[in-house]
Design a binder for these strands. Structure first.
Length: 111
DNA sequence: ATTTTGACGACGT
DNA sequence: GACGTCGCCAAAA
């Protein structure tokens, strides 16, 4: 276990705070952590999320377009989309519909 | 140690 | 709005 994972750890924390039926973007989380231009690290953190003891709803994290770019990293090809749909989010062809409507901004919600 | 890559995003053209 | 480039930083090759 490392302490330097502080950044990653924060990412996991915020990710777990995403409410049911809502989604957020990598960049939004990155900005919330003060690493506005390190959105890639958030994604990298998600890749490591399997390392975390606690479950991380990575399926609720998409890119800023609302596109399920990381769906390939899940067990199945359409598992991520199914998870979102089961939460009431409409997803068509890996694209979240009414994205701004279900978008959850930690900067606003968490202040 | 150096280069390439990557679950992104902002900006320029 | 599509496409290209840069920035950011960590891990894998």
């Amino acid at each position: 276990m490392k302490e330097s994972d502080n950044f990653f750890d924060k990412v996991y924390q915020v990710a777990r705070l995403i409410p049911y039926g809502r989604v957020t973007s990598y960049g939004a989380i990155a900005r919330y952590l003060g690493a506005a231009r390190s959105a890639r690290m958030v994604g990298w953190a998600m890749n490591n999320s399997h390392n975390q003891t606690e479950e991380v709803p990575a399926h609720r994290v998409v890119n800023r377009k609302g596109l399920l770019t990381g769906k390939h990293h899940f067990d199945g090809t359409n598992l991520m989309q199914q998870l979102l749909e089961s939460e009431g989010i409409v997803v068509i062809d890996s694209q979240i519909q009414d994205f701004e409507r279900v978008f959850w901004n930690p900067l606003e919600e968490l202040s």
